[in-house]
Amino acid sequence: MKKTNFVLLVLLMLVFPGLLSAKKKAGDNDECYKKEMLSLQKAIQKDFFDPVSGYYYVVLDSSKREVKDGYLREYTYLWSLCAMFQATNEIEKLDKKAKLMGPMIKNIDNYYDPAPPKPGYSDYIMNLKPGERYFDDNQWIGITALDGYARTKNKSYLKLGKLVYDFMMTGYDNVLGGGIYWKDTSKSSKNTCSNGPGVLVALQMYQATNEQSYLDTALLIFNWTNEKLKTPTGLYYDNIRTKDGSIGKATFSYNTGTMLESYVYLYEITGDEKYLDEANKIADSSLDFFYGGEKFRDGYWFNAVLLRAYQHLLKYNKDMKYIQGFKKCLDAAIKNDKNEKGLFTGRDGIQNLVEHGGMLEILARFAWIESHYDITNCDF
Rank of each mutant, 00 (worst) to 15 (best):
S371M: 09
Y134I: 02
R133E: 12
N174P: 00
C329F: 02
I180Q: 00
G357M: 06
I143F: 04
L163R: 14
F366Q: 05
D123V: 04
E361N: 06
D319A: 07
N89A: 11
N154I: 01
I282K: 10
N223Y: 14
F380L: 01
V58Y: 11
F296N: 02
K315T: 07
L266S: 13
Y157P: 04
T345K: 14
N154C: 00
Y172T: 01
G131N: 14
S63F: 05
L78C: 07
I91G: 03
D123Q: 09
M320Q: 10
T152F: 06
L363A: 06
E355M: 08
G346Q: 11
F290D: 05
E361L: 02
D61W: 06
K34S: 04
Y373G: 03
D95A: 03
V201F: 00
I44N: 02
L330C: 04
L313Y: 04
P17S: 05
D348S: 14
R308N: 10
K106G: 04
M168E: 14
P114G: 15
S80D: 01
L266I: 12
C82H: 02
G161A: 08
G349I: 12
N223W: 08
G234H: 10
S285E: 10
C193N: 08
K338M: 15
K99P: 00
G357K: 07
Y124K: 13
A367N: 10
R297L: 13
E278Y: 15
A279I: 06
F6Q: 11
K35R: 12
L14G: 11
F85N: 15
E361W: 00
G178L: 04
P197R: 06
Y214W: 09
L60K: 05
G349Y: 13
G299N: 05
K25H: 07
F85E: 12
D47L: 02
D50W: 03
D113G: 12
D379N: 15
A98W: 08
T225Q: 15
I221Q: 07
C32T: 05
I362K: 01
M37W: 02
Q311E: 10
T225V: 13
G179F: 04
R133I: 11
A309V: 04
I375A: 11
K118W: 01
C32W: 01
T256V: 12
K318P: 01
G171A: 03
G248P: 00
C329K: 02
Y267V: 03
E31A: 10
Y112I: 06
I108R: 09
K162W: 07
Y172A: 00
L266F: 14
E92H: 02
D216G: 02
E268D: 15
K153H: 13
Y172W: 11
G142C: 05
T270S: 15
G248H: 13
M1G: 13
Q207M: 14
L158Q: 04
K42A: 09
T88M: 13
L14M: 14
F302V: 00
Y77M: 00
A87H: 09
R365M: 14
I44T: 03
V59Q: 12
N5L: 13
L20V: 12
A202H: 07
M169C: 01
Y181L: 03
E340S: 15
E36P: 01
S189H: 06
L307E: 05
D30M: 04
D95Q: 08
R308Y: 00
R133K: 15
Q45K: 13
L260I: 13
E370L: 09
R65A: 08
E36H: 08
E355R: 06
L306P: 00
P114C: 14
K295W: 00
G171F: 01
Y373V: 08
I141T: 07
